[in-house]
Design a protein around this nucleic acid. Sequence first.
DNA 1: GTTACTACTTACCTTATGTATAGTAGTAAC
DNA 2: GTTACTACTATACATAAGGTAAGTAGTAAC
Lengths: 123, 123
Amino acid sequence: MINKISTEKCKSSIKALEDAMYVIGGKWTLRVIIAIKDGHTRFNDLQRTIDGISAKVLSGVLKDLEQNGFVKRKVDIGVPVVVEYELLPYAESLQDVLNALVSWGEAHRNKLIKVQEMSIAQP
Amino acid sequence: MINKISTEKCKSSIKALEDAMYVIGGKWTLRVIIAIKDGHTRFNDLQRTIDGISAKVLSGVLKDLEQNGFVKRKVDIGVPVVVEYELLPYAESLQDVLNALVSWGEAHRNKLIKVQEMSIAQP
DNA sequence: GTTACTACTTACCTTATGTATAGTAGTAAC
DNA sequence: GTTACTACTATACATAAGGTAAGTAGTAAC
């Protein structure tokens, strides 16, 4: 028997999750944030660091990140023009999410490797 | 100047993130887990709780969750046949991820509402 | 004069994901 | 006899995200 209170709480959790995933659930969004955090601030540098991302997609992700207040686009007029992307303080609010996802991802990968080893040892 | 160590660490973080998002980054995956956690164990109950999910998608998500060891499918033969989905212990390892995402989603929503209020107050 | 660097943009194509609608089968209430 | 419940499955269609490849513009090295 499900009571109404738990269901309401459940629905609001699901809504919050939706909001989060809408903003940071894209295939590349968090990868770009991690790379910028690591010190890769320029476009081509980011593209080289993030395996498999195309210029088009990177450009789109950076625009979204700017709109959502995670990143600032800084243009240094010179020869050649250099554009730098800086993380804004709001990006730090994602730290818990990033830590949780990265460490869960590592643990999950280790689990898969163990399962694989066991199936090789005892086929 | 980026040193090699930080870049390697960055790439491995990105890989871990990829692994995590591959398993739980689907649009509905975590929503279904939250709903089961909340006590909604039957198919139609889940479909009613998770707004907008179709039977086809729910069916597919439940199969994935079963394959990944998050959920157990329990069939009670009776009239009518009742199928119950139970969370397995491995699903608990997602607790940190869920907490982080839900609380970030709530905070983000509150931030958006504040920004909206300010733009109405001072147009 | 051809290649490479800076940082992208544009157009097109593919694929994954999701949506909508209907159908299956057995039972039972109205 | 029609509706509703159980839990799905099947089919067809729509959309949106992402992938591919080429182009732009200015400079500079070879």
